[in-house]
Design a protein around this nucleic acid. Structure first.
Lengths: 311, 311
DNA sequence: ATGGCCATTCGCGAAACGCGAAGGCGGTAG
DNA sequence: CTACCGCCTTCGCGTTTCGCGAATGGCCAT
């Protein structure tokens, strides 16, 4: 009924706990943790007393986990990992870093826009640090809503309640192909006219894939799709190998296409113009560092900046 | 350079930290945490000393977070949440629970198989507790690989290195429709012959959706798909409302279909027979409770039980 | 039977912790 | 301009916690 006082947990006890579990013996664990075995024993038995549950089975060979102990160390490991992450991050502050911003972004932005924007940001703010993680658009939204990061950058298609989205950039999808492809040089294309060729694309969660499925359905045709690859560079190499054509953002093509001698054609469809947004949680204020970064990103040349609630 | 000693962190300090951040004042926070303000002040300044970083800006109105402080409380909240979860779970052991098993499962299994299997399991093991969480198949695999749960149940299509998969059940996908639908009563169907009707389905990450996309492509046709809904019950209600037909597992149909007066037709395609597997990590031993549950699930009547590595 | 390995208990000293009182600093009201 | 008020910090003291080493008892293999 009554819950254990969570303050009773000390991180050293948790470390000791996993050490004992891993070493199989209290004495070995205590040398590993640089503590007298007597002290270690006391810590553990005090913990078990407070929990009113035995965590280990004792015998002459050492200590093995009880079921309760197994649950315990799973949580313990998780907590210790979080604590270590915290410690690492804080030590960066000590060495001059003045702010952390966590970003989730979809692949297009990471390849097309973010590097330059972040580079210019770091010139002005060498004391800030940004952690950037790639996710498909829908999971960017979820991640922000769940508090895993401060800012999210993704296509505006996905939706999630409780978030505020601000337009960041607009881009266009273009069709990448080999220079000797039949479609090369035939001018702006309707997506429907490309459906007789094999398409290459990212994983099924990507917004480009989702969007092209819808378009194919509207054209009452099927999307031929033999190959999924993990990144735009892989997409382009696959196109280069004559395995198909691919729908990619125009800025991405400008970066990857020329060096692989690829050709591109514009897409005439409306939905080829995409809106890329920066999302943040609506219910709590951004940290100063995140505000700085947000302001910087929105002040980039293509800035639009109309705020609006998402969903 | 050198990292802060993580043992320096005590959970009470972390709790105090978020209290101060939320209350905006050390004195208010100290009454909330039932501690003298002097002691609270000491805890915080000791922490800042150890970190060699200031976490708060002090002024006459109270205390506000510095950038470092903002990072800190994000981690602190996460750690405290984990600690509270741990405490809650451990208190269950104190009240007689003898083991915990965490399961990730895809929707089909949760609706079709798991309830009965778990029910019989609990009759034999009333002292064990199971935490069940729904995820699409691909994320079940990931979750197990990352150690978020002990056992995963999902379709065998997805793959992930480092996991061991055991066949759990086999099921078939059938086509659910209204009794007055044109396809009703026309005998076993080829999936390709159903593509001229609107399909209803789960979200895009579901393995059924992925599979039917492939099948549509192989038939060189498009999958008409107007509606995504969040669960099988919603799928069936949508079918009932004459918005389309739906591909669902046969056991799910048996549960939901009759009460909604729906009709079903078998699917002749090979891929309609699906294999549902139980996956677990290959690199570490299961807890005793998880072993029990695994054995129980595999001893169900349809048991197959051929072990093999995944990926 | 005996020695090795293992965990626990005990007493003592040191360090950490919490508390209340006193002090300094900055706004604000009269 | 001064007096006050709220806020955080510092200080000294008593209590509690913590860690250590030595001694104890159990189990197993030789």
């Amino acid at each position: 009924m009554s819950s254990i006082n969570p303050d009773r947990l000390s991180l050293t006890t948790l470390r000791l706990l996993v050490a004992v579990a891993e070493e199989g013996s209290l004495s070995k664990a205590s040398v590993r943790e640089s503590i007298a075995t007597s002290a270690a024993s006391k810590r553990l038995s005090d913990l078990e007393l407070a929990l009113n549950t035995s965590l280990f089975n004792r015998n002459a060979q050492g200590m093995t986990l009880t079921p309760a102990g197994e649950s315990m160390i799973q949580h313990a490991r998780r907590i210790l990992l979080a604590a270590a992450t915290l410690a690492a991050e804080m030590s960066e502050y000590r060495e001059g870093v003045r702010g952390h911003v966590r970003i989730l972004a979809h692949l297009s932005a990471i390849i097309a826009f973010l590097p330059e924007d972040l580079e210019r940001f770091f010139i002005a703010h060498s004391d800030l640090k940004v952690e950037l993680e790639e996710r498909p658009s829908s999971r960017v939204m979820k991640g922000i809503a769940e508090g895993w990061a401060d800012l999210g950058i993704c296509s505006a298609d996905a939706e999630q309640p409780g978030l505020v989205a601000t337009t960041y950039r607009r881009d266009r999808l273009v069709l990448a192909m080999r220079q000797d492809h039949p479609l090369a040089g035939t001018g702006p294309l309707a997506f429907a006219d490309t459906l007789s060729f094999d398409h290459i694309g990212l994983h099924a969660e990507s917004s480009i894939f989702t969007r092209s499925l819808i378009a194919a359905r509207e054209a009452s045709q099927v999307l031929r799709r033999r190959i999924h690859v993990p990144g735009f560079d892989a997409v382009c190499r696959t196109v280069q190998s004559n395995l198909g054509i691919a729908l990619i953002p125009e800025p991405v093509f400008r970066i990857l296409g020329p060096s692989m001698n690829l050709h591109y054609e514009e897409l005439a469809d409306d939905w080829a113009r995409r809106e890329i947004v920066i999302v943040r949680r609506g219910d709590q204020q951004l940290s100063a560092a995140a505000q700085l970064l947000l302001a910087h990103l929105l002040s980039a040349d293509q800035r639009i900046g109309d705020d609006r609630p998402s969903s």
